[in-house]
Amino acid sequence: MTDIINALVVLANFLLVPALTYGSQLALGALGVTLVYGVLRFSNFAHGETMAFGTMITIFGTWGLQSMGVSAGPLPTALLALPLGIAGAVALSLLLDKTVYKYHRQRKASPVTFLIVSIGLMFFIGGLVRFVIGPGDQIFFDGTRFIFSARDFKKATGLDEGLALKMTQAVTIITAILVVAAMFWFLNKTRTGKSMRAFSDNENLALLSGINPDRVVLITWILVGALATIAGSLYGLDKSFKPFSYMQLLLPIFASAIVGGVGNPLGAIAGGYVIAFSEIAVTFAYKKVVAYVTTYEPESLVQLLGTDYKIAVSFIILVIVLIVRPTGIFSGKTL
């Protein structure tokens, strides 16, 4: 019996908690992609770099606060700097919308043109971020490291295996829940949110009903900038900030959005967790679990795929969804 509990603890420690954390980050990222898709009707390849940009500003804010001696106690200081990062990312998004996207929108360019434009912006923002903060790793986490560590857990329960909960993991999951709740409240209960959904559902009808398209676009970019910064900062706190890894996040984020059903916020969240769980579950080494559950101790790591192929997992799920159910789990085209 204790063996099975030990096995479950191993799974919870190395699979469940990391996957919930990573899934929350992906879900927030995918939510941004889905919003752009739903309202502006294109796949935004620059989203990963927007995340990196917002995180960069947050890091500068954190450094500033740290040098002034401000801290959030056990919580990471970066949470206090988050509003600054959000403001930065929103400002950048609005500026780029005004200077770049607006022109193509007025000419009613095809979605593919928008896609290429967003790739151009991806390089522009990516270059900007690397130019300002450099391509290297930045660790900006401070505060208490663990809420409870593996040793505390072992002492408290008397089990052989430990379950640790890092501060960043708890912060990520709680922030994600709060943000998602606020987001749904906004989309479903407020007048502005409803007008956004109407615009996403049927643009012409929305225009006829007197919804101001410029305002909808403005609100969308504000939300996207905020979501991108929060997702990026949480990811950066949990792992570390490195511009290149944000470029690599693009594929899992797109996969999450598509798996859930592009344009559907609920789908984006579900997709994020599906991708995160499969990525970690497929590349997880089950050796210990097998050893606990059965009496046999396997020699190999009992890993379905090497960790190097992590990125392939989200792609394979994407392909399966495209073959079996191209509209995604929650078949949705509107917000």
Binding site: F42, S43, F45, S110, P111, V112, L115, Q248, L250, L251, F254, A255, I258, G306, D308, Y309, I311, A312, S314, F315, L318, V319, L322, I323, P326
Partner: peptide, 27 residues
Amino acid sequence: VALGLRSDYLAIATLGISEIILYFIKN
């Protein structure tokens, strides 16, 4: 897989496959 679906799915699918081909070649 990707043709015949929405036009940007091809972009995302090709982006993915090119990364995976490289991971394959590197590993």
